[in-house]
Amino acid sequence: MIEVSRLSKRYGQKVAVNDVSFTVEPGRVTGFLGPNGAGKSTTLRVLLGLDHPDGGTALIDGRRYRDLRHPLRTVGALLDGAGPVPERRAIDHLTWIAQSNRIPRRRVREVLELVGLSDAARQRVKGYSLGMAQRLGIAAALLGDPEILVLDEPVNGLDPDGIRWVRNFLREYAASGRTVLLSSHLMTEMADTADDAIVIAGGRIVAHGPLGDITAGHPSLEAAFFALTGGRVGW
């Protein structure tokens, strides 16, 4: 389970998130929605130990990310904009990550096959398309066979077949009793994938609950999103 309680974070005089609280339950895909600058990335960065909060907590199975003994075995993450060294081969990139968390080398081959990159495993990442690089990022998140996945824009750059694969995979992953937190700007895709939704605007949570409750009274998730956010952004 992911538990965020009264989380606040400033950068100088600017408030990125303000008193943010929510939970992400196992067995469900939870969508994390918000306009650019609303606080999504800051919340995820604090959750994954990349930034320190000014107040509140962001816990994974009751612990801070930095207190996890083998973090990749507990939570797998893909953050938008993060990527491997371009000159490194994909298989070497994943092997290095696996060794850092004492993950067996055979798992590298397994995740490469799972995301459809077996034939490109020895190709240097600089030669990858955007979609291939995204698949590699998902493979890295899956290396530890974690109970929790935190994915930021996982279908960015994927073709329709890749998008369908991610959607089906995440739903199956959650159905096995695991926890999935998914951030995306693609409302149609989120409506087809998520069970629950968290909507953030201006650094504050404006809605949190089952997707059906969020969209009640609106013709679509997109319509509900705009009604809830009212054009607000963060800093």
Rank of each mutant, 00 (worst) to 15 (best):
V115F: 01
L117T: 06
V115L: 03
P104M: 04
G116P: 10
A90L: 15
H93V: 06
L112G: 05
R102Q: 09
L94C: 05
Y128M: 10
W96A: 15
R102K: 12
R105T: 08
V111Q: 01
Q99A: 14
W96H: 13
N101C: 00
E110T: 14
N101E: 01
L112D: 04
L94S: 01
L112I: 06
N101S: 08
A120F: 13
Y128E: 07
G127Y: 00
R105G: 03
S118F: 11
K126M: 09
E110R: 10
L94Y: 04
L114I: 07
L117S: 02
A98L: 00
I91E: 15
A90V: 09
S118W: 14
V115I: 10
P104C: 05
V125K: 09
V115K: 05
P104Q: 06
A121H: 11
G116L: 07
G116F: 02
H93E: 02
V125L: 10
R124S: 13
A90G: 15
A121K: 13
N101Y: 01
A120P: 04
R106N: 12
D119R: 15
D92S: 13
L117P: 08
S100N: 05
R122W: 12
R124K: 14
V108Y: 02
V108Q: 03
K126F: 08
S118D: 15
N101I: 00
R124G: 11
P104N: 08
L114V: 06
A120E: 10
R106Q: 10
R124Y: 02
L112N: 03
R124Q: 14
R122M: 13
Y128S: 08
Q99K: 11
Y128W: 08
R122Y: 10
Q99N: 14
G116H: 03
Q123H: 09
R124I: 04
T95A: 09
E110S: 04
G127H: 03
V108C: 05
I103S: 02
R105Q: 06
V111Y: 02
R109E: 15
Q123R: 14
A90I: 09
E110H: 11
E110N: 05
R105H: 06
W96S: 14
E110M: 09
E110K: 12
